[in-house]
């Protein structure tokens, strides 16, 4: 799907970008008076398969490795380039849209095109197919990156490809009154959800709820464990603690209701928004609690 989307974009770019964006400016050029033997060395040294032939700054032909091989076969290694080069050359101009160069490549089967200035035929660069590919690739990548930054859209590289009865589970302990670590379990859950490529909104809602649950457990309970479960339809959190249980669940779900002592409030918690916040962020919430024994909180966020 991703690839199908990008082809039109790259085609569009071949019109928007021009030859000068893609061409290589450091051109290895050769003089028409050099020998084929010398050409062989130059091609080998620069690891290239051909070069424009230039006299007084102007392109008068192109010589390629195929021309070289023909000469080698015929034993004409001392011949001059000017006698063996292709004189009917096709060039392109720096301002031409890339698509024009692509069409020339397709029509002629050439491997490279000299880029010359329109009015004076002066050589300014050379363009190969791989230059075009690299240029498009770089442009697409930068477009993709800016787009990603701008829209902050989360793609679903992993999760969307999962099918069937896939299920992922992660369990972590939560310590009572450990304020240094409080939040680290939710942070790990958030990481896992992000790695699975869950939609940003889901990650946000689940991790906010998980964090509230974790803080509740740290502040009010004897500690316990939290579990994250991801399956094709939902992300689910279970928070199970070892007591002391919630006195009045209905009250605890009222925004602003809190039993927090002042020192908790000074830590920035205990505003009585924990459970209400979880309720607001989840599609399904269950609380089972037994006085002096446990509280089992579970909530889910639907994925579709």
């Amino acid at each position: 799907m991703g690839i199908r989307k990008k082809i039109p974009k790259s085609q569009e770019l071949t019109y928007a970008l021009s030859v000068k964006d893609a061409m290589c400016k450091n051109v290895v050029k050769v003089s028409p008076y050099l020998s084929i033997k010398k050409l062989r060395e130059i091609l080998k040294e620069n690891a290239i398969s051909g070069a424009p032939v230039v006299e007084k700054g102007r392109v008068i032909g192109v010589i390629s490795i195929e021309d070289l091989i023909k000469c080698l076969v015929k034993g004409e290694i001392t011949a001059k380039i000017k006698d063996k080069m292709t004189k009917e050359i096709t060039v392109c101009h720096p301002e031409d849209p890339l698509i024009k160069a692509i069409q020339i490549f397709e029509r002629t089967g050439y491997g490279r095109l000299p880029v010359v200035e329109k009015d004076n035929n002066k050589l300014v660069g050379i363009l190969t197919k791989s230059d075009i590919v690299m240029c498009l690739f770089k442009k697409l990548r930068s477009l993709y990156e800016t787009k990603e930054e701008k829209e902050d859209e989360n793609h679903l590289p992993l999760y969307s490809e999962l099918k069937g009865d896939f299920s992922f589970k992660m369990e972590k302990p939560v310590e009572k009154m450990d304020f240094k670590k409080a939040g680290s379990v939710s942070s790990a859950f958030k990481d896992a959800m992000e790695k699975f490529g869950l939609p940003k909104d889901v990650v946000r809602r689940v991790s906010i709820s998980a964090y509230e649950a974790e803080m509740n457990m740290v502040i009010y309970s004897e500690g316990g464990t939290m579990t994250l479960q991801i399956d094709p339809h939902k992300a689910k959190i279970e928070a199970n603690d070892n007591g002391p249980g919630i006195d009045d669940v209905k009250k605890a779900l009222t925004p602003g209701y809190s039993t927090a002592p002042d020192w908790i409030r000074e830590l920035g918690f205990g505003a009585g928004m924990g459970l209400p916040n979880i309720q607001n962020n989840s599609d399904k919430l269950k609380i089972r609690t037994k006085k002096g024994k446990f509280t089992r909180l579970s909530f889910e966020v639907n994925l579709k």
Binding site: G256, S258, D262, R265, E266, G268, A271, G272
Partner: peptide, 25 residues
């Protein structure tokens, strides 16, 4: 501010105190 100790330390007489704290303290 919402931290009572900060409010005690930093606010002045005659200020309007803006907060999201709602408990009796």
């Amino acid at each position: 501010g919402d931290l009572l100790s900060d409010v005690l330390a930093g606010s002045k007489e005659g200020d309007v105190w803006l907060t999201v704290q709602v408990h009796p303290n």
